[in-house]
């Protein structure tokens, strides 16, 4: 059984810090697991397992969704926010502003769950904090 399948089964049964996890596998060239953390469902997390890492990404908004004239200002803020924000980082992928965290493939299940909760919380907080930049 691959790691992603194993995680899906374990996540479906666990409850941590009052959160449960709703998982939906997405088939494709690269298998992806869509995870909704209960209480923070608005911004689901997309999980990918590669040779070197477990990558968790939450999609915040597209470039088109922000006020164009404030793009530079937003980018500057995100760079400055990157370091103080615990465990998650910002990136731009295919026109999407994302927030992500990565773990070693040998990570314990507890660490992965912690990452999911932290990432979902960080992305929800970030989206609210950056509301003024969104159209």
């Amino acid at each position: 059984m691959n790691l992603l399948n194993e995680l899906t089964l374990k996540l479906a049964e666990c409850q941590v810090q009052g959160h449960t996890f709703n998982c939906l596998p997405i088939k494709g060239e690269q298998e992806v697991l869509r995870v909704e953390v209960s209480g923070l469902e608005e911004l689901p997390i997309f999980m990918t397992v590669t040779e070197s890492q477990i990558l968790c990404i939450s999609y915040l908004f597209t470039k088109e969704e922000i006020h164009q004239e404030r793009e530079n200002e937003l980018n500057q803020y995100l760079l400055e926010l990157n370091l103080p924000m615990p465990l998650s980082s910002f990136a731009v992928v295919d026109g999407y502003y994302v927030i992500f965290g990565s773990l070693a493939t040998v990570s314990k299940f507890d660490s992965i769950v912690q990452e999911l909760i932290t990432l979902a919380s960080n992305s929800t907080d970030t989206l609210q904090a950056l509301e003024e930049f969104i159209k």
């Binding site: 997309f46 992928v93 999407y96 609210q128």
Partner: peptide, 26 residues
Amino acid sequence: VHQATKSVTQTITANESSIGSARESL
């Protein structure tokens, strides 16, 4: 990451309610 993003964005576009716009989420 590129392939994963491709899968994800395809899902998002195929099923609009999957993520929705940032404004809606907010």
